[in-house]
Each structure stands twice: as structure tokens, then as C-alpha cells.
């Protein structure tokens, strides 16, 4: 109900009651912590640089598998792209294969000291994203990406490479931008 405020000399309307958000706060589940965190067994929460180095070596154990499997995937994908160049009905499958390969290499290249592969795969992934098919030129652009990835892998070019490799990445990205359309 509104009332006259003698102090300010104004008619004051009562404030609308605030609508409270219906928020339920559930305490953290500490079962896992109680079971696994202790002062006797296991690995330190803060690993020493030596322990981290050992753990990194465990990750790197799969490096050879990566080289072998991705090498095979690159060859299979290249074959599909070449077949798709001559057979339009195979293009959707070739695009899907390129997309899967690009994602996989982008995800793992850097883990196994091949960040250059991650860069090229990223360019390829952007190029094939949201496509269901591709025209001849677009398939050739994909093939160039695949070939570049293969060369890096076969030459075991770890790290980001020299200026030549970086120029190749830049050229591939520009090429992908140039033939980006139509995206269907």
C-alpha cells in the first residue's frame, strides 16, 4: 500500500517483492577424495619435474603407433580422394574421410611433437567443415593437404619446421580460402 513520506514529502509506493531464483546448491561429492587422497600411496598431487618427464615419456610411447597409423590413414584417404575425382558418387565419402582424418591429426599431431601437422590439419578441417561433397578443385586442395601431411610424417619433421615449412602452411591456408566456395 502506498503512503506519504513526511521526510521527503513524497508518496512512496512499496517495493515489489524480489523474485528469488530457485537455486539448489548441492555440497561437493567428497567420496572420491576420501578414498584416493592420502599421504602414503600413489603419486604426489604436485608432481616434480622428473615425475612429469616420466609421465610425458609414457605419452610418447604411442608416438610410433601414431606415425604408423596416421601414415596408413593418409594413404587410404588419398586413395579415396583420387577415386572421388573420377567418380562423383564417391565424393561424400571422401569428404567425410578427410574430415575425420583432419580432426584426428589436428588432435594428436602436437601431442607427438608434430605441431606442424596440427597446423596443416587445422587448415584442412576448416576447409572441409560443413561440407557434404566437394568439387574437383576442392578435392585437389584436400589432396594437397594430405600430401603435405604425409611429407612431414615421412620426413619426421618435428617442431614447427623452418621458414619453408611455415610458408607451405601459409600457402595451403590461402589456397583453402581461395577455393572455399561453394560449400555444399
Amino acid at each position: 500500500m502506498s503512503h506519504f513520506d513526511w521526510g521527503s514529502g513524497a508518496i512512496v509506493k512499496p517495493e515489489e517483492p524480489k523474485k528469488k531464483k530457485n537455486v539448489q546448491i548441492i555440497p561437493a561429492q567428497t567420496d572420491l577424495k576420501k578414498r584416493a587422497v592420502n599421504f602414503v600411496n600413489g603419486f604426489d598431487i604436485n608432481l616434480s619435474p622428473e615425475q612429469l618427464e616420466e609421465l610425458e615419456q609414457v605419452v610418447q610411447r604411442s608416438s610410433e603407433t601414431f606415425v604408423r597409423d596416421v601414415g596408413k590413414d593418409l594413404m587410404d584417404c588419398r586413395r579415396l580422394v583420387i577415386q572421388a575425382l573420377g567418380d562423383k558418387s564417391k565424393r561424400p565419402d571422401a569428404v567425410t574421410a578427410c574430415s575425420d582424418l583432419a580432426y584426428s591429426v589436428k588432435a594428436l599431431g602436437g601431442t607427438f611433437q608434430y605441431p606442424l601437422m596440427t597446423q596443416i590439419a587445422k587448415s584442412m578441417e576448416n576447409f572441409v567443415a560443413d561440407r557434404t561433397t566437394a568439387n574437383e578443385k576442392q578435392l585437389l586442395v584436400s589432396q594437397l593437404h594430405i600430401d603435405s601431411l604425409y611429407v612431414i610424417l615421412a620426413g619426421r619433421v618435428t617442431g614447427f619446421g623452418s621458414t619453408v615449412e611455415q610458408a607451405t602452411v601459409a600457402a595451403l591456408t590461402k589456397l583453402a580460402e581461395r577455393y572455399e566456395q561453394p560449400r555444399e
Binding site: R35, A36, V37, N38, N41, G42, F43, D44
Partner: peptide, 22 residues
């Protein structure tokens, strides 16, 4: 130092990529 005993924890990896899961 506090430690974590990973023997007492069960994990499920959901990943279609063989190498990543490995």
C-alpha cells in the same frame, strides 16, 4: 605431500580414436 592413489579409482574412456584412447 598429499598423494593420489589411482588404484582406488575406476575410469571409463569414451573415445573412437584408437591412438587418443591409448
Amino acid at each position: 605431500n598429499a598423494k593420489i592413489d589411482f588404484r582406488k579409482i575406476s575410469f571409463l574412456i569414451v573415445d573412437g580414436d584408437k591412438i587418443s584412447a591409448q
